[in-house]
Nucleic acid binder design. Structure first.
Lengths: 246, 246
DNA sequence: AGGTTTATTATGTCTATACATTATTTATTT
DNA sequence: AAATAAATAATGTATAGACATAATAAACCT
């Protein structure tokens, strides 16, 4: 029989309760940045539990960057972090169907070749390798939504040479078949050139949002993709709640 | 004395070694999505350690969403996650000085008024409130870098009325003085209108990258800001290492 | 055959304890 | 007074066990 009174809607387990208790105090500002939170020994007395239990709670808070732990000194509330946002770059098909619109995909071209100078620069590789170059268009309700240009490093992903990208986009195929360890996104605004204008049915020079993404696995470049969206049509949305996972 | 041979460049602690061992196998594709990784009991035999130790390693992998744990069934490699990226939206001053360039800030206008219809829409508030409307320009080496338009909700942040924004940008002031709990970013491409073109020294209609950010605290809108960058000049970079904190 | 109970397996939480590590303070010596 | 050594306070890692929980598989009875 425990004497600890359970809070309403308190998490079922003790370490979670300790964690959210402290979390609330930090996020509400009651424990401001720099504040020294009670030591593990104080907390184990307060919650009448073992040190491992409070340690687990504090470790998770440290992983979420809400507190910083220093030996001999104690644990301290961290100051608000750099303004960073989690940008969910969803699969385009998912994005369109989530809006309740019809998704269409059209493969414009598919070529296999030895990587030329431009390909190697784009992929960020120095040695010779085979690549698969794809061009495609994603549409919503028949209206062009995004133009995709992609290079796949066939030395890293040989299976891609036999994949059929005429019905499903390379993005979803890769996502499902190839694990990756690192990705880089570069987001910029450009004016539509003649090719883009033609594919997206916009005027030449009209502003477009561009996402360049490169993906690696263990240092080896897997693929580089460039997605061009008509600027006024599309917005990337990043919502950022608090500072950590719930 | 332990019999476990230490790998070169292996982490100093056992649970970390177990974690990175498994992580490597997953990221290399040797253990593909759906693969059932050894149970805790198998791992404690293999590493000759206690269950708590392997459990700690597996718990961290689960927190990083690399594996999924199911009672009675075991732990399984998860399929690659939604492509999400952490976008570091740094302070503009920090961004410029990090590039080794000189930072300049110029306040173009500052007006206090009761929020009009457009202000309320932009802030996303319905009731009447006082706002501070700011226009400013950030430059790198004397060249316009970004144009900032901002509204501050004075009902939520009354101290801002007395702050001096002619030397330091409102962004850094707010970051330092006002804790926030939620933020939303909308990123799009637009063509420069006459005002933007004049401030940024670009041609009218030239593509620009726009970041709209709104910030809340406990459901109350604090500020809305719109940053316009010359498109070809600026890129937002989001690098995403692995899937979890190192 | 179909449904119900029971056993089994694997994860989830927790305890009590031990020793390691790190940084600081205090005491001791030169 | 300065340099060195020892005690101390906090976190970090690890152990061996306990009981809880969930989901499945096996045994059992209609």
């Amino acid at each position: 029989m425990t004497l600890v009174t359970a809070t309403r809607s308190s998490p079922p387990t003790l370490y979670k309760r300790i964690r959210t208790d402290i979390e609330r105090r930090i996020l509400s500002g009651k424990w401001p940045p720099g504040y020294r939170i009670p030591s593990e020994h104080e907390l184990m007395k307060r919650y009448d539990c073992s040190r491992m239990t409070v340690s687990k709670a504090l470790t998770e808070l440290a992983q979420a960057d809400l507190i910083q732990r220093r030996k001999r000194a104690g644990s301290f509330v961290r100051r608000p972090q750099v303004l960073s946002a989690v940008l969910e770059i969803t699969d385009i098909r998912a994005e369109i169907t989530a809006l309740g619109r019809r998704y269409d995909y059209q493969l414009l071209s598919r070529r296999r070749r030895e990587a030329n100078r431009g390909d190697r620069t784009w992929l960020g590789v120095t040695e010779a390798c085979d690549v698969l170059a794809l061009e495609a268009c994603h549409s919503a309700d028949g209206i062009p939504f995004a133009k995709e240009s992609r290079l796949i490093n066939l030395d890293a992903v040989p299976e891609a040479a036999r994949a059929d990208f005429s019905r499903d986009s390379a993005g979803s195929w890769l996502l499902a078949h190839v694990p990756w360890s690192e990705a880089e996104h570069r987001i910029a605004a450009i004016g539509a050139d003649d090719k883009i204008a033609k594919t997206l049915h916009t005027a030449e020079g009209s502003p477009c949002l561009v996402i360049n993404r490169r993906t690696w696995r263990n240092g080896q470049t897997l693929t580089a993709v460039r997605l061009v969206y008509p600027g006024q049509e599309h917005q990337l949305v990043a919502r950022f709640k608090g500072r950590q996972a719930a």
